[in-house]
Design a binder for these strands. Structure first.
Length: 645
DNA sequence: TAAGCGGATGTTTTT
DNA sequence: CATCCGCTTA
């Protein structure tokens, strides 16, 4: 393939540019990756740049995987040498290769979300409740660069510093690492080691989805591309959806506005049909402080199909979506892999998944760490971990089970005792189980520890099926996901250790395939970068879309309203043919509370024994413009849908 | 020891 | 709203 086959306009200009600083602003479905960045790689390789001197970076694993597949498909000499990866994976590799972790006494044992929560509860200090602590750990992972004026990599505020040192103390003591730590660590390392091999290793650094990066990450890329190295960045601030991790969407505009940057824009969407693109354009035009031309449609004569559907209750919504999907598949209008179901609540997504599976339709959900969302699953995984290794974090999990705050007070006392005695928690409890005295305040841990030891002693690690039966028994709903993963992995692993390792990868690093043979169900966030003929967005009610902070300031709430609009914009621009937006008109009160739906408490109605409350349709449905269809009742839509063709 | 009260928590997203 | 924890009071 020649680098310029069949491309013109901005795509060709991006691929051809010899500038050492290139910025690309391009909306969803504009082909910036496939026809801009990829062709640029082809041209560089054809002109003799060694593949190993080209680095391609993206933020999400899905996008990085997509880059790798596209490079492999190029079939160009040298393409297999090109490195395409997530920024985190790149940083982790760098730290491993230069033994940075080992030298600083750190272990590459990543923490899962429920484990991080325990760590946060264990910290002693005036850091506020768990929500405030989660925000602090996000700021720490962003190198404390919360605002653009902050100097990335350094905690300035004394309270921030105290938080950081307490986190580090806990993490080192428990021989673990936060995934988010790798970027600050790599940044610090590169800044203090100007001789490091990676600085100057690449002649071309190409970054996709730049709007997803925070200030620290953007600075790190500047370090990698200092001097002679060419830096090409591409992104779209309209698709910036990661403010919770301090992503810096204005960074892309600032980069484009620099004098030394050659600026490119792509305004033609080749993915969405006319009607869907018109709705997306209308929606995003409601963003405040936005001044951009609308995207034009390459398929102006393809109309696309859109429905906005309202159901009486959430269960009707789930059943209705399931029925419509089943009909489309059974009547051969669609393949399962053509269908993408997006929702901001895993409970809704999992209900759709289970409904489809009941009717023999293959469906997979991709919510983060969903296999260990239940306490029993967390326990089972921790027991397996402790059975194959001495893992302090898993012991911490076991000791905190079935308690609102994970017995943080008692565990703090245990940690203090162990520090004083110079032994590990495992050692302290082990000695106590053999008769040594423990201080009264932490003696309550002993029965839990002994119970865990008994379970572990009862395992026959050489017999993997028996381990699975013992730890993840069948017919326990809370363990179903974990068991399914373990059973699936069983043929490919030969030891309990490798089963554990594979399980952790499957739990924490879920890959979303681009062309599967099953229905995909996921969060709106996860959908970024995907294209699908049919897209359902379920749960279009206020409180779900948008999800807003409960006790936020006015500024925080309006920032969330802006970002949730961009998230919805990402979701609807996934659709290449058909889009269905759906929501329930009312819900049972306790379920509505659990889902954080916005409610007017004066509207509670008692029907029989249950309390019902009306929900409020998402504000964004009103921003979709004149091409949006009227909302129709679910029963009527389903009847039309089942009868169509 | 039991009852009562007030406060925290529940949730969504990524690496 | 529902549940749970810690603390105070009877």
């Amino acid at each position: 393939m020649n680098w310029d086959d069949g491309i013109e306009g901005p795509h060709r200009a991006i691929a051809a540019s010899a500038s050492s600083r290139i910025g690309v602003l391009a909306g969803p479905g504009t082909g910036k990756t496939s026809y801009g960045l990829m062709r640029r790689v082809v041209r560089l390789l054809a002109e003799g740049v060694p593949g190993g001197r080209i680095l391609l970076i993206s933020f999400t694993r899905t996008a990085a995987q997509d880059l790798r597949e596209k490079i492999a498909a190029l079939g160009v000499f040298g393409a297999d040498e090109v490195r395409a990866t997530t920024l985190h994976s790149y940083c982790f590799g760098l730290l491993q290769r230069d033994s940075v972790l080992a030298i600083t006494g750190r272990q590459p044992r990543p923490m899962m979300k429920h484990e991080i929560d325990l760590m946060l509860r264990d910290l002693e200090g005036d850091f506020g409740n768990i929500y405030a602590r989660r925000e602090l750990v996000e700021a720490f992972e962003a190198g404390w660069a919360r605002g653009i004026t902050d100097h990335p990599g350094l905690a300035v505020d004394p309270s921030d510093r105290q938080f950081e040192s307490q986190v580090m103390r806990w993490m080192i003591h428990h021989r673990a690492i936060l995934i988010g730590e790798v970027v600050p660590l790599a940044f610090d390392y590169l800044r203090n080691n100007p001789m490091a091999e990676d600085l100057g290793n690449f002649s071309h650094v190409i970054v996709d989805e730049y709007q997803d990066l925070n200030v620290l990450e953007q600075h790190l890329l500047d370090l990698l591309a200092e001097g002679e190295t060419s830096l090409c960045i591409a992104g779209d601030d309209d698709q910036s959806i990661y403010s919770f991790r301090h992503a810096n969407p204005i960074g892309i505009q600032q980069f484009l506005d620099r004098d030394d940057v050659e600026r490119h824009e792509i305004e033609v969407c080749g993915r969405c049909p006319r009607r869907i693109l018109s709705m997306a354009n209308s929606l995003i035009s409601h963003a405040s402080d936005r001044d951009k031309p609308v995207m034009t449609c390459r398929q102006e004569n393809v109309e696309g199909s859109v429905a906005v559907v309202q159901w009486p209750d959430l269960s009707d919504e789930v059943e209705g979506i399931v029925a419509a999907i089943v009909a489309d598949i059974e009547q051969d209008r669609r393949q399962p892999g053509d269908i993408l179901v997006l929702t901001s609540r895993h409970k809704i997504g999992e209900a759709v998944r289970d409904g489809l599976r009941t009717l023999e339709i293959d469906a997979h959900s991709f919510f983060s760490e969903e296999a260990v969302r239940t306490v029993r699953a967390q326990e089972a995984l921790a027991l397996l971990w402790l059975a194959v290794s001495d893992d302090p974090v898993s012991l911490r999990v076991i000791l905190g089970l079935d308690d609102g705050d994970g017995r943080a007070n008692a565990y703090r006392k245990l940690m203090a005792y162990c520090w004083q005695e110079g032994i590990s928690e495992q050692e302290a409890l082990g000695r106590a189980s053999r008769g040594d005295k423990l201080p009264v305040s932490i003696r309550a841990f002993l029965p839990r520890y002994i119970h865990a030891c008994n379970v572990i002693d009862g395992l026959t690690l050489e017999d993997l099926p028996s381990v699975i039966e013992a730890l993840f028994p069948d017919n326990q709903e809370e363990l179903a996901d974990l068991r399914a993963l373990a059973v699936d992995l069983l043929p490919d692993v030969e030891s309990a250790r490798s089963l554990l390792d594979a399980l952790i990868v499957r739990i924490t690093q879920v890959d979303v395939p681009a062309s599967p043979d099953y229905v995909r169900i996921m969060s709106l966030h996860k959908s970024k970068g995907l294209t699908s003929p049919v897209v359902y967005v379920a749960g279009m009610a206020e409180g779900i879309v948008p999800t807003l902070p409960k006790n936020g300031t006015d500024d925080q709430v309006s920032a969330a309203v802006e970002e949730q609009r961009r998230l919805f914009y990402v979701a609807i621009t996934r659709a290449a043919d058909q889009l269905v937006l759906s929501y329930a008109a009312s819900m049972e009160l306790s379920l509505a509370m659990k889902l954080q739906v916005r409610l007017d408490m004066s509207k509670i109605r008692r029907i029989g024994g249950e309390k019902r409350i009306p929900t409020i349709a998402s504000r964004y449905l009103r921003e979709l413009g004149t091409d949006a269809p009227r909302s129709v009742p679910g029963a009527r839509w389903l009847q039309d849908h089942l009868g169509s063709q």
